[in-house]
Design a protein around this nucleic acid. Structure first.
Length: 866
DNA sequence: GCGGATCAC
DNA sequence: TATGGTGATCCGC
């Protein structure tokens, strides 16, 4: 999408910059620059969004200040030394300069908007944008004259241009068109790299070689007439042919300025007779040069889709990308493959034009007097002292006009996420419900690609637009909605608790899964399953198994000698006396088998059985359910045992208070919970069913001795968002009550009653947690108010992984809503960067290299979620 | 490994 | 009334 990243030299206001409005593109037909800025400011000032923008700007300014301080401390001797070092590296780079590839960057013009205009003639000649009242993704060139740009909220765009037509996006359609384009691109480079639906890089070096010998008719294309272009689109102009001639003819000859074509160049220059395309009646013949190839590509794209594209041709990706922007829309530009042509092009190029140099980088470099690539090169020694190695290497390459000369294939995906913005949600129950929904969505997406990962990250943005993320990595992969939610929920809970009694006022929530195992990891994990099950292994695993030696720990916390304060206090608060009598409730879909951990375990064992051909190799297993050694049996037999254990009464042996007979309970307390975020038809029926739960909860809370503070179950379940309209799948589960004695409750009484409610019992978000039943984590000694083994195991896993210090820090020492000191100084990086920044994605950070020790002025970060 | 930031599209 | 979603990377802890 062009113009999503507006690059401007002159900026005073970050916001306006973001909107891309302080340029001079607003022409006579639209609004002038000042008027546009005024309207935007009026619409923005005073908003929470703007407040956050100001805050971010301050932080950037602080970083700039730090850098300037560091700069002031640099001695001329340091600078000289750096200069020598940098120049040595620059020489190496120069020697590696490769001009032998021809890279093309293709960029469809105002793609989404163009598709919509193509398919709806009424939109022609009108200012339109694709998106919604809250966000636009593209605008057409007509709308841009009014200052309407991508990444601008629609309601502001409407103020700029009241006649603006906002079309909702139609991604299926864009994908289809994109596919058509890609089919063409593949003819020139089967390994082309698509960056998005409307952008791609091609390496046409090979194609050019082959093309040299192509006969003319292989480079000849027929211009479709208006009629054949009609396809299924009636209502198009009849004189399509002449229109095409108008649009094609000038383009074919006037793209690159003449000064780009050095005199005497015979290979690439438009030598009219040989190279240039010739329009003969209804056909056109393209030449064999790179420029001709790209014209051919664009011609074919337009013939096939009725949409125009812009293109850049250069010896590397970085330059090609900049070039494609040069003659947009519907144009192309080439940098010839010789060093002088590259340097001429680079000379006055604003660094902001380069992919990877964003708003912040631009601002920081500008503070150092760097705006163009020439200046970037001149300051290379200074930059090597002020920035990380990754950064200054990247800067140096840019300033020399270097970039990737080959298109690397997309590597494996590293994360997958879902996130959603909504109108304010402050109630914890709704937040949990939302989280669960996101987890379900994510799980579905993961399943499509067969992915499993070990790190779950939640993302929260409050109504003040402040963002934070919280992550947890477990020891074995997860992928189902339940598994992910079990982890995400804990992360969310920590954040909610940290701010209590203030609610989190959220406007966005996201869930991400990462740490996908590579092939080796997978193998290793598989192999470890059997070994893990054998006696003597003291590993606790996220798969939910604790072998025998840990059973005692599970039932009776070990003393953790060196971890004090918080946990010690907690421990003394929670009398161990209730250990043997803690109550257990299980709520399952089908009896007890929903314990995901066991399912996962069994599955993995099954896989192992198939792959490791050890069926006749009997081993000693310890059942993860009953913790009994199963003697020398094979896996199959062991599986059966585990199954029996899961179905049978053996759970009672671990959880004496647990009654495993689920069928009886089913009849009595089969509860359907749908925590839909919007009203739906099912709601009424569900309400009836929740009455049972309601009673249960009230009972529990009564036991805690503070029923008056209890929120009614109706209030808790009757949640709906104004925006969201998808409902959770109905979750049916059984509740089995133990007639517990009060030992557990005694400990609960120590808790703040509000906190108790907050933490578990009344939250209708989970199918498996209703009451405040406690399992004791053998690591941190804290009771876990869940009766679901998966969740419990997840907690244990987190505990094991992070260590108690981490857990402690997270819970108490460094709560997010307290001011925290942060050295955002950019000094003291001691890291040695091994990798060279890929041109594809950059995202640089700016740390001073270790050579300069700055003052490290500390500053207090703003309080989050306050 | 975590969390904040930056960047692209 | 009202300022997105997905993925990647880097840096300092």
């Amino acid at each position: 999408m062009d113009n999503t990243k507006e690059k401007n030299d002159n900026y005073k206001d970050d916001l306006l910059l973001r909107m891309g409005l302080n340029d001079n593109k607003a022409g006579m037909e639209g609004l002038d620059k000042e008027k546009i800025n005024k309207i935007i400011m009026e619409a923005t000032k005073g908003s929470r969004f703007y407040g956050n923008e100001l805050k971010k700007e301050k932080q950037v300014n602080q970083r700039i200040e730090n850098i300037m301080q560091q700069k002031a401390q640099i001695t001329s001797q340091q600078l000289r030394k750096a200069q020598l070092q940098v120049d040595r590296f620059a020489m190496e780079l120069e020697q590696s300069r490769d001009l032998n590839n021809t890279i093309v960057h293709i960029d469809m013009d105002a793609f989404y908007a163009a598709v919509e205009m193509r398919d709806n003639p009424e939109l022609k000649d009108k200012p339109i944008a694709v998106g919604s009242s809250s966000m636009l993704t593209t605008s057409n060139y007509h709308a841009r004259r009014f200052g309407v740009r991508a990444a601008m909220p629609g309601f502001i765009a409407k103020r700029l241009c009241p006649q603006l037509i906002i079309v909702p996006p139609n991604f299926d359609k864009y994908r289809a068109v994109s596919k058509e384009v890609k089919e063409i691109l593949a003819d020139y480079d089967p390994n082309f790299m698509a960056m998005s639906l409307d952008e791609a890089y091609l390496n046409i070096t090979k194609h050019l070689q082959e093309r040299k010998n192509w006969p003319e008719d292989k480079r000849k294309y027929f211009i479709k007439t208006g009629n054949s272009l009609e396809n299924d689109k009636p209502g198009k102009e009849v004189n399509k042919l002449s229109e095409h001639e108008r649009s094609i003819s000038p383009l074919l000859f006037e793209d690159s300025p003449p000064d780009l074509q050095p005199p005497g160049n015979t290979s690439q220059v438009n030598s009219e007779e040989q190279n240039n395309s010739q329009i003969l009646q209804n056909s056109v013949v393209f030449g064999t040069s790179a420029e001709e190839v790209v014209k051919e590509i664009r011609f074919r794209i337009e013939q096939k889709t009725t949409l125009t594209a812009s293109a850049g041709i250069a010896p590397n990706t970085m330059l090609a990308k900049v070039c494609s922007d040069k003659n947009k829309p519907n144009g192309q530009y080439q940098i010839l493959p010789n060093r002088q042509a590259v340097m001429d092009f680079i000379k006055d190029l604003p660094i902001r034009k380069v992919s990877g140099i964003g708003k912040v980088t631009e601002k920081m470099l500008k503070a150092l007097g760097i705006i163009t690539c020439t200046e970037l090169y001149q300051q290379r020694a200074l930059l090597s002292l002020l920035f990380s190695e990754t950064s200054w290497h990247y800067f140096l390459r840019i300033s020399m006009g270097l970039g990737s000369t080959h298109l690397t294939r997309d590597g494996d995906r590293k994360s997958m996420s879902v996130e959603r913005t909504f109108s304010e949600i402050s109630k914890a129950e709704e937040q949990y419900s939302l989280c669960q929904e996101l987890c379900s969505e994510l799980a579905q997406d993961l399943q499509k690609e067969g992915l499993k990962g070990r790190t779950v990250t939640i993302k929260l943005k409050n109504v003040n637009f402040e963002v934070k993320t919280r992550a947890s990595t477990v020891s074995s992969v997860v992928s189902t909605a339940e598994e992910i939610f079990a982890i995400a929920k804990e992360l969310l809970r920590t954040e909610i608790n940290a701010d209590f009694p203030h609610p989190l006022k959220l406007r966005l929530m996201g869930v991400r899964l990462s740490s996908f195992p590579n092939e080796e990891d997978k193998k290793h994990q598989q192999q470890s399953i059997v070994g893990f099950l054998q006696a003597g292994n003291q590993t606790l695993s996220a798969t939910g198994c604790m072998e025998k030696t840990d059973k005692d720990q599970f039932l009776k916390p070990v003393e953790i000698s060196d971890k004090k304060s918080f946990f010690d206090k907690k421990r003394s608060e929670r009398k161990w006396s209730h250990q043997d009598t803690f109550k257990c409730e299980t709520m399952n879909r089908k009896g007890i088998q929903t314990s995901q951990s066991f399912q996962v375990l069994k599955k993995k064992m099954g896989e192992n059985l198939e792959t490791s051909e050890n069926s006749d190799n009997n081993q000693i297993f310890t059942c993860p359910v009953c913790f009994r050694e199963q003697g020398s049996i094979n896996l199959e037999a062991f599986n059966k045992h585990v199954d029996t254990c899961l179905d049978g009464p053996s759970m009672n042996e671990i959880f004496p208070c647990l009654r495993a007979s689920s069928t009886e309970v089913n009849k009595k307390e089969n509860v359907h919970h749908s925590f839909s975020l919007c009203k739906n038809q099912d709601y009424e029926t569900h309400q009836n069913n929740t009455e049972v739960t309601s009673a249960d909860c009230v009972k529990l809370v009564e036991t805690t001795g503070n029923p008056s503070k209890t929120e009614s179950i109706d209030a808790l379940t009757n949640k709906h968002s104004k925006e969201e309209c998808s409902s959770l799948p109905n979750t049916s589960f059984n509740i089995e009550h133990c007639h517990q004695n009060s030992s557990c409750i005694v400990s609960l009484e120590n808790e703040d009653a509000g906190s108790l409610r907050r933490q578990e019992p009344l939250q209708p978000y989970s199918h498996d947690v209703i009451t405040g039943q406690a399992l004791i984590c053998p690591v941190c000694n804290l009771e876990q108010k869940t009766s679901d083994l998966t969740q419990f195991n997840v907690h244990v896993d987190i505990c094991l992984n992070k260590g108690i210090i981490q857990e402690l820090k997270k819970d108490k020492v460094n709560p997010v809503n307290q001011p925290k000191e942060s050295t955002k100084s950019t000094g003291n990086s001691g890291r040695v960067q091994k990798t060279v920044t890929k041109p594809k994605r950059s995202g640089l950070m700016y740390s001073a290299s270790k050579k300069i020790k700055p003052n490290n002025p500390r500053h207090t970060l703003d309080i989050f979620f306050k």
